[in-house]
């Protein structure tokens, strides 16, 4: 049996104004369907314990997190070792509801940017208002990160999580490192 690995083998860069690191492998399941329907909401709630979040939000319950991706898509984060069981449980719970549930754990790469200047590093790359108060933990934003698509959220203050396509992992890591170069603080949010 081959061992699942992350795209960059846990690359870390902490020479700059924020620590950029590839995140540990985390289970990701995409559910597409009418996420406003009672059947889908109920299925998500029964499996993950979390209520379906509103637009641009995320909801956590225990080790599960639901992220609002679009009006017909939700991303389920779960521990990597339970992703298979969660997938089956979601499929069973959805029953006859018209949904697509797919394990995308290894289709994605995930990074963290941490430190007091993490907001600045992200603001250099994303066309998003990342000022304190405008973007806070609990919000979930799909956006453009330099030249590629990414999803961004804050697990806690001063820490960002970024999810992108696995094939773009090296690009995203490098561009984050450039944005976090030593001496590149802007002071935009001071």
């Amino acid at each position: 049996m081959s061992e699942p690995i992350t795209a960059l083998g846990g690359a870390v860069s902490q020479n700059g104004i924020a620590k950029v690191a590839e995140a540990a492998r985390e289970g990701m399941i995409t559910l597409r369907g009418d996420v406003t329907s009672a059947a889908v909401k109920k299925a998500l709630k029964s499996v993950t314990g979390a209520a379906m979040p509103g637009a641009g939000q995320m909801a956590t319950s225990g080790s599960y997190t639901l992220c609002w991706m679009s009006p017909d898509e939700v991303l389920v984060l779960c521990p990597a070792d339970t992703v298979g069981d969660t997938l089956t449980a979601l499929q069973n719970a959805a029953g006859t509801a018209h949904v697509l549930v797919v394990n995308v754990t290894d289709a994605r790469a995930s990074f963290t940017v941490a430190g007091p200047l993490a907001r600045e590093v992200m603001a250099k790359l994303c066309p998003v208002d990342l000022a304190p108060g405008a973007f806070e933990p609990g919000m979930f934003r799909r956006t453009r990160l330099a030249q590629v698509a990414a999803a961004v959220w804050m697990p806690e203050a001063e820490r960002f999580r970024i999810v992108c396509f696995r094939s773009q992992a090296r690009y995203v890591f490098d561009v984050l490192c450039v944005a976090a170069q030593e001496g590149s603080a802007v002071g935009a949010f001071n």
Partner: peptide, 12 residues
């Protein structure tokens, strides 16, 4: 109007 996000044109 779908997700309510306000962003500049490069996101669109």
């Amino acid at each position: 109007p779908v997700c309510g996000v306000t962003a500049e044109e490069t996101e669109f």
